[in-house]
Computed example of a mutant assay.
Amino acid sequence: MLENRLIYGLYPEVITEPGDAKRTLTSLTNNYLYKDLFSYKGLKKPDVIQKLVRALALQLGSEVSYNELSNLLGIDKETVENYICLLEKCFVVFRLDFFSRNLRNEIKKGKKIYFYDNGIRNAVISNFAPLELRTDAGALEFKWNAKAKSKQLKVFMESYLNSVYEIITPENFWSFVR
C-alpha cells in the first residue's frame, strides 16, 4: 500500500474508501483546503493563494524562491511569505531548511516546501498517475535505500554533532510516519 499512500496520501476517508480516493481528494481540495485561509481577515486575493498552492505543488522537492513566486503571481515578496506562513498555520505545507556544508550558506539559502499530505498535493495538480509514470516520483519518495552511501550525511553529522539520523526503508516506513 506504500505506493497508494505516496499518491493518495493518508486522509482517513482516502484509506477507508480507496475506490473514491480521487473524488475525495478533489472535493477536499476544492471545498475545504482553502476554507480556513479564505475566512482569515485581511486575505484580499483568494485566487492568488490558489495559484500559489499550485506553484508550490509543482516545485515540490526544489528550492523555493520567494522572488520567483512574487514575479509569477504578480504580488510582492512579503505577501508571498505571508501566504506561505498562513498555509503552514493551516497545516497545508511546511518549510524545510536548506542544508549546506557551509553553515553561513544555510542561512542565506532558500527553503524547500513540502505538503503535509501527498494526496492533497497531487489533487492540486490533478496528477494521480502511478509512480512509474511520474516525472515527480523522486519528490514523493524518501531516499530509502539502506545500502546507499551519502556524502551529505557525513557532512551533516560532522556539522551537527550529537545529531541522529535514520534511513527510511520500506521496512521501517510505517514506524517512521506514526
Results as ranks from 00 to 15, higher is better:
Lys147Gly: 09
Ile168Cys: 09
Ile167Glu: 03
Val164Glu: 14
Ser175Gly: 08
Val155Lys: 02
Asn162Lys: 13
Lys151Glu: 13
Asn162Trp: 06
Met157Cys: 11
Asn172Cys: 09
Gln152Phe: 05
Asn172Val: 02
Leu153Glu: 04
Phe173Met: 05
Leu153Thr: 02
Phe156Cys: 00
Phe173Gly: 01
Phe176Asn: 09
Asn162Met: 12
Lys147Phe: 10
Lys149Arg: 13
Val155Leu: 03
Pro170Arg: 04
Asn145Cys: 12
Lys149Thr: 07
Lys147Ala: 14
Ile167Asn: 01
Phe156Glu: 00
Lys149Tyr: 12
Ser159Asn: 15
Met157Arg: 07
Ile168Trp: 02
Trp174Glu: 15
Trp144Ile: 08
Tyr165Pro: 03
Leu161Glu: 14
Lys149Met: 07
Asn172Leu: 10
Glu171Tyr: 04
Phe156Ala: 04
Val155Trp: 01
Lys154Thr: 09
Ala148Trp: 08
Trp174Gln: 09
Phe176Met: 11
Ala148Pro: 01
Ile168Thr: 06
Asn162Tyr: 14
Trp174Val: 04
Tyr160Met: 03
Lys149Gln: 12
Leu153Cys: 07
Lys151Tyr: 06
Gln152Glu: 15
Val155Pro: 04
Asn172Trp: 07
Ser163Arg: 02
Trp144Pro: 04
Gln152Tyr: 11
Glu166Met: 13
Val155Arg: 01
Trp174Phe: 12
Ser163Leu: 03
Glu166Thr: 08
Glu171Phe: 01
Asn145Val: 05
Ser150Val: 04
Glu158Met: 04
Ile167Trp: 01
Ala146Cys: 07
Lys154Ala: 09
Phe173Val: 15
Asn145Glu: 08
Trp144Gly: 15
Phe176Asp: 08
Ile168Ser: 04
Ile168Leu: 06
Ser159Gly: 10
Glu158Gly: 01
Ala148Asn: 09
Lys154Leu: 08
Lys151Arg: 11
Glu171Lys: 14
Trp144Glu: 08
Lys147Met: 11
Ala148Ser: 12
Ser150Cys: 10
Lys151Thr: 09
Ala148Asp: 10
Tyr165Ala: 02
Val164Lys: 15
Lys149Val: 06
Asn172Tyr: 08
Tyr160Arg: 10
Leu161Pro: 06
Leu153Arg: 05
Trp144Thr: 12
Ser150Gly: 08
Ala148Thr: 00
Lys154Pro: 00
Trp174Tyr: 14
Lys149Pro: 03
Pro170Glu: 12
Leu161Thr: 15
Ala148Arg: 15
Phe173Pro: 04
Lys154Val: 05
Asn162Val: 11
Glu166Cys: 12
Ala148His: 07
Met157Tyr: 05
Ser163Asp: 01
Ser175Thr: 13
Lys149Asp: 12
Tyr165Cys: 06
Phe176Trp: 08
Ser175Ile: 10
Thr169Cys: 03
Gln152Asn: 12
Ser159Val: 04
Leu153Asn: 03
Lys154Ser: 11
Trp144Asp: 14
Leu153His: 02
Lys151His: 05
Trp174Ala: 08
Asn145Lys: 10
Leu161Lys: 14
Trp144Cys: 14
Glu158Lys: 04
Phe173His: 07
Leu161Tyr: 02
Asn162Thr: 15
